[in-house]
Design a protein around this nucleic acid. Sequence first.
RNA 1: UCCCCGAUAGCUCAAUUGGUAGAGCGAGCGGCUGUUAACCGCUAGGUUCUAGGUUCAAGUCCUAGUCGGGGAGCCA
Length: 490
Amino acid sequence: MALAVAALFSWNKARRYRRPGHGRPHMDRTLIKYALTNIPAGQAVTVAGWIRTTRHSKGGFSFLTINDGSCMASIQAVADGKLANYADELVHLSAGSSVVVTGALAESPAKGQTVEIQASEVRVLGASDAATYPIQPKRHSFEYLRTQAHLRPRTNTFGAVARVRSALSFAVHEFFQQRGFLYVHTPIITTSDCEGAGELFRVTAMDLADLPRDPAGNVDGEQDFFGRPTFLTVSGQLEGETYACALGNIYTFGPTFRAENSNTPRHLAEFWMVEPEMAFCDLAGDADLAEEFLKFLFRVVLERCGDDMKFFNDRIDKTVIETLEHVTDSPFERITYTEAIDILAAADRSWDYPPRWGADLQTEHERFLAEETFAKPVVITDYPAQIKPFYMRLSDDGKTAAAMDVIVPRIGEIIGGAQREERLDVLEAQMKAQNMAPDDYWWYLDLRRYGTVPHAGFGLGFERTVQFITGMVNIRDVIAYPRTPRSADF
RNA sequence: UCCCCGAUAGCUCAAUUGGUAGAGCGAGCGGCUGUUAACCGCUAGGUUCUAGGUUCAAGUCCUAGUCGGGGAGCCA
C-alpha cells in the first residue's frame, strides 16, 4: 500500500513537471529561459545549471551567474552570507561548478538583468577547480576550444550553435512533413563503390592483421561479413530514388561519409545531409523546392532563435541577420552554366583560372557570382554533361545535363542536385561512358525498366547551412565532434 | 594531396641584428564594491611543439617531422 501511494505521488509529480517550462520529472526545476521571461517577480523558483562567473562581495554576499543551456542568457542569483553553506562552500564556487538554486524571483536593482534570484538555498552538486577548468571566463580561440570539444558547449558560442542546429533539424522535418514528403532511412552501409561522389570508407569485420586472400593474392572481400566489399555511404540518393519512384516525394536526413583528404573550413569526413527526391518532377521544380526549403529554414531561425541570432550578429558576423532577411525576401537568382561563363568572361577582373565552357566552375568563380554579381544565393543549372555524374539527365542539346547547384555567399556550394536520367538506354550509355558496370546497378536500372518517371532531387549540406546562418567560419565548429583527416578525437 | 603561414606561462600574444623569458587575461591571497568584460595591490606559474644541425651563444638561423590556421583541389 505504501508503495502504491508513493508511486501515485511520483506519478503526479512527474506529470506536473512535464508542463512546458519544467525540466526532467525527477528534479523540480524551472528552465532559465522561462524563469527570465514567463514567471512573475515574487514567485519562488528552482533553477539548476553551471556557474559561468562569480563575484564574491566581502560585504557578505555573492553573485552567481548560472546558465543551463536552455537559452543564451544566464540568470543571476544573489547568495546571502547568512546561508548555512556560505563560508564553507559558496565563497569558493567558481566557473564550471554545478548548482541548484532555490529562491524568490526579484526585480533586479542593478543593470544587466531585469530579474534575479534571491537565493534561499544554493546546493552545490559538483565543484569545479578554477585552476584547472579548461573553460576560463574569458575569450578563447575556436582552435583551442576544439581541443575541449566536450566542454565547449558550455560557452556562449557553442551553446548557440547547438540550439540553432537543433531548431534547424526540427525545421527540416517540419518543412517536408508539411508537404507530404515521407522520411526514408537509407542505409549507412552500402555496397556500391562508384557512385561518383567521393572516396569511401571501407567497412569490414575482417582481421586486418590476417586478411583472407584469394588465389591471386588479393584481399578476398567474399570472406568479409557481408560476403562482399562494403563501405560507408557517400549519399542516400540512389536508394532515395527507389522510394520516390514508389511513394512520390521522400527525403532523407542522416550522416554521410567521405574519405576525401579535404582540409578546408567547408569539409568534414562525417557530415549530415538532407536529400529530398521527387517523382514526377523536373529540374525547375527541383530548383523551386530548393529555394523554398532554404527560405523556410532561414525564416525559422530568425523567428525562433532570436537571442542566439543576435549573438551571432553581434559577435561572429555583423551581417548574418541582414543577409538572412534579405535572402528570405527576394527571389534567388537563376542562371544557366553557360550564362555564368559569359558573365565571368565579361567581368572586369583577372582570374587564376580563366572561365572556359566545359570546365567546372572554380571557387573564385562561384564566389564572384554569389558575392559580387548578385550578392545572394544563385541557382546555376545545365552544366556540361561531361563534368557531371552519370545519373544526371542528359538534355536535348546533347551537351548539358539537367544539373543544379545552389551557391551562397561566403560558403559556396550548399546544394547540389539534378533531374535524374529516367531513360534506360541513355542511362546505360552514360554509365558505360564513365567505365561503370551497369550490372552492378541492376536495381537502380530497374526503376527505368518498370514504370520509369521523370524525377529530381538534391542534397543539402546541413553543416554548411548552419555555417551560412550563424556566420561561423569553420565547419568544425558547427558540429559537436568534427571528424576530419587525422582528427577523430572524443 | 599541393602552396603559404604559424607553434613561447592555464589561455591570448610580445621578445630589436642571434646575447639573462615578458605583458594582458585567468588562478591564489589581500583590499574594496548591488556586482555583472567589475576594480586596486601582491604572489605563483616556462624543457619556447619534437628530433637533429650551425654557433662562443638559438625562442630567434638551417633540415626533417608532428600539430594548427589560411588558400587550392575534391565536394555538400
